[in-house]
Each structure stands twice: as structure tokens, then as C-alpha cells.
């Protein structure tokens, strides 16, 4: 995926996590729904964030992966 795609995934998951953070204080029922959302979204957020700032903007060589 391209850098922009990772950024979009990062932003979407960050928004979902932000909404889930407010879901508990306002008493969304059932209470386990925001928890499930966080458990499923947080790993995607972490990996997409890392992949976003890891991805290069410029064309590079293909890395050597062995013969």
C-alpha cells in the first residue's frame, strides 16, 4: 500500500478509538461493544501508524532478500 493509504487507515482507526473512548462515559449499551471495538481497532492503528511513518515518499531500490 502507499503512504497515503496507511495514513487514511491510521486516521480512520484513530477516529474510531476516539469515539470508543467517549462511548464508555456516555454509557453506550451494551458496555462490551466499545471494548471489542478497541481490541479490534488498536492493533490496526498501531501497525498502520508505524507503516505510515515507515513508508517512503520516493522510489527506492528493491531490498536484497537473498538468492
Amino acid at each position: 500500500m502507499k503512504k497515503e493509504s496507511y495514513l487514511i487507515v491510521t486516521i480512520i482507526t484513530a477516529i474510531i478509538l476516539g469515539v470508543a473512548a467517549f462511548a464508555v462515559p456516555i454509557g453506550v449499551e451494551p458496555g462490551w461493544v466499545p471494548v471489542i471495538v478497541v481490541v479490534l481497532t488498536f492493533p490496526v492503528f498501531v501497525l498502520a501508524l508505524f507503516l505510515w511513518w515507515n513508508a517512503s515518499n520516493i522510489e527506492g531500490d528493491f531490498p536484497f532478500t537473498g538468492y
Binding site: V39, L40, F42, P43, L47
Partner: peptide, 13 residues
């Protein structure tokens, strides 16, 4: 990797 993060996020809760 994603599953590893997810299960310990669940354990935290």
C-alpha cells in the same frame, strides 16, 4: 503481530 497486540489490549481491560 496484530493478534498479539489485540489479546493484551483485551487482557488490560
Amino acid at each position: 503481530v496484530a493478534v498479539s497486540i489485540a489479546i493484551w489490549t483485551g487482557a488490560f481491560y
